[in-house]
C-alpha cells in the first residue's frame, strides 16, 4: 500500500494527515482527523450522511479518495458553528425537531449550507432538489424542509 501525505484546510485549520491511497476521504476524516460528525451510512454515495463541502462543492466524502483532498478546502459539520454560536441551520434543526436519530443530520446540514450559500431564498421545490442526495429514515423530511426555510429567513433578516 502506498501512503500519501495530505495537507488540506479543514474547517479553517491547516491539517496534515498520512493516508493510504485507496482510503476514502470519509475514513480519513473519521479515523485520522477525528471528525466523527461525518457519518458513514452506505459507503456508495447513495445516502449523503458523509457529505462535506470540498472546494465549495457538495461532495459525498465516501466517493472521494483521500489523496484527492491534498490542497483542498474542506468544511464538515464540525465547522458550521462559530465557537459556541450555532449556525442558523443548526439552530433551526434543533428548534424545529428536524432530527430524530441524528445520523443523517450532519449531511443534511452541510447540503443545506451549500444550497443557502448559492441561493439564500430557495423555494420548497428547490430545497427538495438540493437535499435529494440525503436520506433520512426517521423524520419523514417535512420538518427538515421547514427548518431550512426558517434558517433561510433568519439569515436574510440578519
Amino acid at each position: 500500500m502506498s501512503k500519501t501525505h495530505v495537507t488540506a484546510i479543514i474547517n479553517g485549520d491547516q491539517t496534515e494527515f498520512l493516508t493510504e491511497d485507496g482510503t476514502s476521504l470519509l475514513n480519513a476524516l473519521r479515523d485520522d482527523v477525528g471528525l466523527t460528525g461525518v457519518k458513514e451510512g452506505c459507503g456508495t454515495g447513495d445516502c449523503g450522511a458523509c457529505s462535506v463541502i470540498m472546494n465549495g462543492a457538495l461532495n459525498a466524502s465516501c466517493l472521494v479518495f483521500a489523496p484527492e483532498a491534498d490542497g483542498a478546502t474542506i468544511v464538515t459539520v464540525e465547522g458550521l458553528a462559530d465557537g459556541d454560536h450555532l449556525h442558523p441551520l443548526q439552530q433551526c434543526f434543533l428548534e424545529g425537531a428536524a432530527l430524530q436519530c441524528g445520523i443523517c443530520t450532519p449531511g443534511f446540514l452541510v447540503a443545506a449550507k451549500v444550497l443557502l450559500d448559492k441561493n439564500p431564498n430557495p423555494t420548497e421545490t428547490e430545497i427538495r432538489y438540493a437535499l435529494a442526495g440525503n436520506l433520512c429514515r426517521c423524520t419523514g423530511y417535512d420538518k427538515i424542509i421547514r427548518a431550512v426555510q426558517e434558517a433561510a429567513s433568519r439569515m436574510q433578516e440578519a
Binding site: G45, G48, S51, M54, A57, L58, N59, A60, L63, V64, A111, V114, Y129, A130, A132, G133, N134
Partner: peptide, 9 residues
C-alpha cells in the same frame, strides 16, 4: 446522474 453530491463528481 445522481444527487448533487454525485453531480459534483
Amino acid at each position: 446522474i445522481g444527487s448533487d453530491q454525485v453531480q459534483s463528481r
